[in-house]
Amino acid sequence: MTRSIIRYTALSAVLLLLLPVVTGCRSCGTKPEEREPDMFELREADKRVLDEIRQAERIFRSMPSPLESAMLIRQAEARFDRSILNPVENASNYTTTRSMALNLGIYTCNLSYAGLYDQTRIIIDYMEAAKRMAEGLGIMDAVSEEAVQRLEENINNKEIIMDVVAETFMNSSSYLEDNEQTAIAALVLTGGWIEGLYIATQLVDMSEFEDNMLVSTIIDQKLSIGILAELLDENRDMAAIEEVAGQIDALKAIFDKITLTSTPISTEVDRESNVTILRSEVQADITPEIFIELREAVADIRNSFIK
């Protein structure tokens, strides 16, 4: 037993010393994967352990990005209202990791919303606010000068604006994932999603509640809040997440009051376009009272994020 511990500890120490060689030797003549068997003669037991590590299942929980949230609002034919955005002047108030992460998501959603409604005068301001949040989080290459310039030169081109927003958001999220800052990445997504929900709920005209496309879009978010709750749960060991997770759990309890039932999905392929159509019917039941409760809860959470 003791000998085994010594043997494995020694092997670990050797591997630890070799880490910089393996990970840093990019200019060496032989590729790392070609050297692997020579450098480490793995015995059967080690291979078994490696196999067990490989079996560890990877689970991704994908939330609507701020761009997708804004697109859903646009698609529901809602109007643009600048007064409900988080003012860019607030950016200087955000100095903690939590507030910068949440507001990176919020400002990216505001930027997407403005971009999709041709609000050319404020797009650059919101891009700068998002850049400030990203830089505060240590993500220096999220919003490059090149991206800002491309935006300025194509301020009337919606497609390019969307491309730039998607690229900068991906730069942020990939940086956070690569640096194992998944809790911060989860906060960014939470901020963006809550902002989209906040904008949507604020834009609903209660006198046109029935058959309202925006209300349908809001109800659909019931399908995503469970994913978000699980995403935050996975990172609950971070103090900043704990509070946000509690807020999302409370919001989920309100979404749970909405009934959403679906028929099984049947598929059909459009031979001409090669697009698969997923056919199903969904029945949703929400009362104006539940909607108002939801709208107020979303506003409380969002206002706590932008404080």
Binding site: S12, L19, V22, T23, F40, V49, I53
Partner: peptide
Amino acid sequence: LPALLLFTAF
């Protein structure tokens, strides 16, 4: 430990 370090390295 050894396998975990090896896995992490790559």
